[in-house]
Amino acid sequence: MAGSEKLRELVLDLAIQCESDPRFGAVKLNKLLFAIDVSAYLAWQRPITEAEYIALELGPVPRQLSALRAEMVQRGEAAVRLHSLFGVTNPQERLTALREPNLQVFTGPEMALIDAVIDSTAPYNGHELTEWSHPFIGWKVARKGDAIPYESALISPEPPTPSDIQRTQELIQEYGW
């Protein structure tokens, strides 16, 4: 199945699974999608949706999500509702599914990963998940609007340990780099 179709079905699945989460808005949706695809990449060397993520001020966002969301609204698959949260003056934008997602497009392991990411991020709001995404090296080095390579998930934001440096030096000597 094409990546954009998997992205569509995942967006609908997230909207349904997170419907009762008062913290689920546009920002949390973006971060959930990113966390799912990066987790899949780390597990299987391939993302679930094949979405291209770009660097924006609040963190990684699927490049095609805005157009996809507009198309989903136009086709009657989803609606965007404004939700006032805790008396905040800027209402939260919530995507609401108007049809059931086709979960048959996902494998069993993909569904298990999706559910695990949803469960692990349940207590967090969009702002907190944004803070989680900011140390991600791919986002940090990309310019606003640039694509973030999935491979950057393999790079730790932590400085190398002495044993990392020693192993690197051994590899340089062994392979003559």
Score class of each variant (00 low, 15 high):
Pro109Leu: 09
Pro109Trp: 08
Pro109Glu: 12
Pro109Gln: 05
Pro109Gly: 07
Glu110Thr: 04
Met111Phe: 01
Ala112Arg: 13
Ala112Asn: 04
Leu113Arg: 10
Leu113Asn: 01
Leu113Cys: 03
Leu113Ile: 02
Ile114Pro: 02
Ile114Asn: 01
Ile114Leu: 06
Ala116Asp: 11
Ala116Gly: 11
Val117Gly: 01
Val117Glu: 01
Ile118Leu: 05
Ile118Ser: 00
Ile118Gln: 00
Ile118Thr: 03
Asp119Pro: 00
Asp119Lys: 14
Asp119Ala: 15
Ser120Met: 11
Thr121Ala: 13
Thr121Glu: 08
Ala122Gly: 00
Ala122Lys: 13
Ala122Gln: 12
Ala122Asn: 00
Pro123Phe: 07
Pro123Asp: 07
Tyr124Gln: 11
Asn125Lys: 02
Asn125Pro: 10
Asn125Gln: 05
Asn125Glu: 08
Gly126Leu: 08
Gly126Met: 05
Gly126Arg: 04
Gly126Val: 11
His127Leu: 13
His127Trp: 15
His127Glu: 10
Glu128Asn: 03
Glu128Trp: 06
Glu128Cys: 02
Glu128Leu: 09
Leu129Ile: 12
Leu129Glu: 10
Leu129Tyr: 03
Thr130Arg: 15
Thr130Ala: 14
Thr130Glu: 07
Glu131His: 07
Glu131Asn: 04
Trp132Glu: 11
Ser133Gln: 06
Ser133Asn: 05
His134Tyr: 07
His134Lys: 11
His134Met: 06
Pro135Tyr: 08
Pro135Leu: 11
Pro135Lys: 09
Phe136Glu: 11
Phe136Pro: 00
Phe136Asp: 04
Phe136Tyr: 14
Ile137Trp: 10
Ile137Thr: 09
Ile137Val: 15
Ile137Arg: 12
Trp139Ile: 06
Lys140Met: 10
Val141Gln: 08
Val141Glu: 07
Val141Gly: 01
Val141Ile: 15
Val141Lys: 07
Val141His: 05
Val141Ser: 02
Ala142Tyr: 01
Ala142Ile: 01
Ala142Arg: 05
Arg143Asp: 03
Arg143Trp: 07
Arg143His: 14
Lys144Leu: 13
Gly145Ala: 11
Gly145Phe: 03
Gly145Gln: 12
Ala147Gln: 04
Ile148Leu: 00
Ile148His: 00
Ile148Thr: 00
Pro149Asn: 06
Pro149Cys: 04
Pro149Met: 05
Tyr150Gly: 00
Glu151Gly: 14
Glu151Lys: 12
Glu151Leu: 13
Ser152Glu: 07
Ser152Cys: 03
Ala153Phe: 04
Ala153Trp: 02
Ala153Cys: 06
Leu154Met: 14
Ile155Glu: 09
Ile155His: 12
Ser156Met: 08
Ser156Ile: 04
Ser156Gly: 04
Ser156Thr: 15
Pro157Glu: 05
Pro157Thr: 09
Pro157Ala: 09
Glu158Lys: 12
Pro159Asn: 11
Pro159Phe: 06
Pro159Cys: 09
Pro160Asn: 05
Pro160Trp: 06
Pro160Val: 06
Thr161Asn: 05
Thr161Asp: 08
Thr161Leu: 15
Ser163Cys: 00
Ser163Thr: 12
Ser163Tyr: 07
Ser163Phe: 05
Asp164Tyr: 04
Ile165Glu: 11
Ile165Lys: 10
Ile165Tyr: 03
Gln166Asn: 06
Gln166His: 12
Arg167His: 10
Thr168Arg: 03
Thr168Tyr: 14
Gln169Phe: 05
Glu170Thr: 12
Glu170Asn: 08
Glu170Tyr: 06
Glu170Pro: 00
Leu171Arg: 12
Leu171Phe: 13
Ile172Trp: 08
Ile172Met: 13
Gln173Tyr: 09
Gln173Leu: 13
Glu174Ser: 10
Tyr175Gln: 12
